[in-house]
Amino acid sequence: MFDAVTKKGLTPLLGILKELGNIGIMFLQSIYWTFRRPFKLNYIFKQMEFIGVNSISVVIITGTFTGMVLALQSYYGFRKFGAEGLVGTTVALSMTRELGPVLTSLMVTGRAGSAMAAELGSMRVTEQIDALIVMALNPIKYLVVPRVIASFLMFPVLTSIANFVGIIGGYLVGVKLLGINEGAFINKIIKYLDPEDIYNGLIKAAVFGIIMSVISCYKGFYTRGGAEGVGRSTTEAVVMSSVTILVTDYVLTSLMF
């Protein structure tokens, strides 16, 4: 009786651990295959185009509006203390340290992570992955590594763009709309924003890129059950990536700052 209960309780836990282990293995494999010749540069560039270039619009829109709303919200708070000048600082710090990397990663996860899981999933169920193996080509190298590398490189790139447009958005709302003193706005940013804030944010983004791509590739790569399975993998990839990104964000933040 007791045994049955513990077993029932343990089974999902073991399942999670196993999944984490498998994801870890996929991560290690992709590191291993990253450094094996030949380097599939054209594959990497294609993925960089897909993950990076094609995400620009969504990242710019997200970043700008986040900066704008940050300015709006913090303005109402700071006005009570007569410290409107700190709006710029708030926008700049929140964007570079937190919202730039996290929101960019979540948006790109929704766009590219789901696509990764769906692509690899349908390659799995239509035996394209088997076809690669039969050709004596390692599917991790051909399918996973380019996506992981491209995400690793493109997430910081997109984040730095999000940071920039976010601060511009905050500037537009704060200075042009709410009439905060322009000099105070900019100087307070310059004064309180450290390069470390920006760099740590970008490091975060790179880590999120790895997390997102490894999880999404894993989910796609081990898809079972036809078209339905592909749909399931896609959903799971986005949910798991997003949750892991948020949890990791907390850990990284507490380590970095």
Binding site: E119, M123, T126, E127, Q128, A131, I133, V134, A136
Partner: peptide, 20 residues
């Protein structure tokens, strides 16, 4: 195994062409 596989060719039941 990959060495051996290089001497093989295979046509899959559903062709398994690369979509991309």
């Amino acid at each position: 195994l990959n060495e051996v596989r290089r001497s093989f060719g295979m046509l899959f039941q559903e062709a398994a062409l690369f979509d991309s």
